[in-house]
Design a binder for these strands. Structure first.
Length: 134
DNA sequence: GCCAACGTTGGC
DNA sequence: GCCAACGTTGGC
């Protein structure tokens, strides 16, 4: 079991959209590092859902429902997508500000590599974020 | 293979 | 709206 974090601009696709849809094909990733992370996802892995830009907060937990397959929106088979389903809401959104202020999260990829859109989380980072969100 | 130019992301 | 970080493209 691995833990991940994905980013989305809520204006483009929000956590509420995922809850409404019940399942989403997480496609459109065009960055090799993010792609490599998608390829390592296994069914049942938990994925924190982060709203970037306008909100800047972790808002819920999703779960991997299907391992990487060719991205239907890409011309090239080198790009992949996974399927995500909503697991549960965060009671309280965990803001980027909170994350920055928590010394336990100082090495989180979200801060270290601000432009990466699909990143792994250490189990302890996942646990800290979970406790902050509930 | 280097690097300047350019485009995109995302925080501020 | 600006800009830093960073990835990609294309000329040489």
């Amino acid at each position: 079991m691995q833990y991940w974090l994905v980013k989305s601009e809520p204006e483009t696709y929000s956590w509420a959209d995922l809850v409404r849809d019940g399942k989403i094909c997480w496609d459109g990733v065009r960055n090799y590092q993010a792609r490599n992370n998608l390829q390592q996802m296994q069914p049942g892995d938990l994925v924190l859902f982060y709203h970037s830009v306008s909100e800047k907060a972790v808002v819920g937990i999703a779960k991997v429902a299907r391992t990487a397959y060719p991205d239907p929106t890409a011309d090239d088979v080198k790009w992949v997508a996974v399927d995500l389903v909503p697991e549960r809401d965060f009671k309280d959104a965990v803001t980027l500000d909170q994350i920055k202020k928590d010394s336990r999260l100082e090495n989180i990829a979200l801060l270290r590599q601000s432009r990466l859109s699909v990143m792994p989380l250490r189990p302890e980072e996942f646990e800290v974020l979970l406790s902050l969100g509930n």
